[in-house]
């Protein structure tokens, strides 16, 4: 979960800003992951993240935006339980996220 946040932050910062999905989508995704890491996530956020990762892949102009969704997609596919722990239990199972502001 923290790795996905760090990676999405990388893409957000590196986005050139030309195309809509990458410019705004990476920022939205990063905001959502930030929220989860601070204990403010909701389960709907996970649906939004799922959709964003798909949009980044399909709609972006270049490889940067197209790749940006992958960490989220993989996170949700392979580490969903860990992410849900942040939301439903209010804990970070690996003890990395601050879980508060």
């Amino acid at each position: 979960m923290d790795l996905a946040r760090v990676l999405i932050n990388f893409f957000r910062v590196e986005s050139c800003g030309k195309c809509t999905p990458c410019r705004i989508g990476t920022k939205r995704a990063h905001d959502l992951l930030e929220g989860i890491s601070r204990g403010k996530g909701t389960l709907e956020d996970l649906d939004s993240l799922q959709a964003l990762s798909q949009e980044l892949l399909e709609l972006s102009n270049c490889g940067l935006g197209q790749t940006a969704g992958t960490p989220i997609k993989d996170m949700l596919a392979y580490f969903r339980a860990e992410v849900e722990a942040h939301i439903r239990l209010g804990i970070c199972p690996v003890g990395v996220c601050p879980m508060h502001d």
């Binding site: 957000r12 910062v13 590196e14 986005s15 050139c16 800003g17 030309k18 410019r23 705004i24 990476t26 920022k27």
Partner: peptide
């Protein structure tokens, strides 16, 4: 012109 990059563009 466009200044900055990413979301700050």
């Amino acid at each position: 012109g466009v200044s900055e990059r990413g979301f700050d563009s």
